[in-house]
Every structure is written in C-alpha cells, then in structure tokens.
C-alpha cells in the first residue's frame, strides 16, 4: 500500500507499523518524533500503530539551532 512520508509517496506492506517503517528507513525510533495524520504519537505507540493506505506521516527530529 502507499503512504505519504515527509511529503513523498512510499510503498509499504499492509499492516506495516510505525516502528517497522522507521527502522526500514535506517532511523532509530527513540530519535524520531512522529506525526501521523496530524496526531502526534507517543514513543510507546510506535510498535503497535499500524499504517493505512494514504496515511500521512511526518518524521521529525532535533537539529542544531539557536
């Protein structure tokens, strides 16, 4: 199925969880903030939260700033 992640279309398997997606992108879940369909997820929701066709995700992290 297709989802939109950080503005770009991605193909993921059906029932893919947020954790699986993050790991498949080479990222560590604890360093990523996830907004899924405009709702901010808690870290402990990542392993169980399943994505759906057309889910819109924003993966955010801390960067240097002033």
């Amino acid at each position: 199925m297709k989802i939109i992640c950080n503005g770009e279309e991605q193909e993921v398997r059906t029932e893919c969880t947020v954790s699986e997606l993050i790991v498949s992108l080479g990222l560590k879940p604890e360093t990523v903030v996830v907004e899924c369909d405009a709702v901010i997820l808690k870290l402990d929701e990542y392993p169980t939260r399943q994505l759906h066709e057309g889910s819109r995700l924003e993966l955010i992290h801390f960067v240097g700033g002033g």
Binding site: L25, K28, V32, V33, E58, I60, H61, V63, G65
Partner: peptide
C-alpha cells in the same frame, strides 16, 4: 542549549545531535 525541530531528510539523515 537551544535545539530546533525539523523534518528528517530521508535521503540524507543528519547525525542525531541528541546523542
């Protein structure tokens, strides 16, 4: 220390400054 939040560049993820 101040830090900023940005969308992760999935093609080129930066170092995680938290670490």
């Amino acid at each position: 220390v101040t830090v900023a939040l940005r969308r992760i560049d999935l093609k080129n993820p930066e170092d995680d400054i938290m670490s």
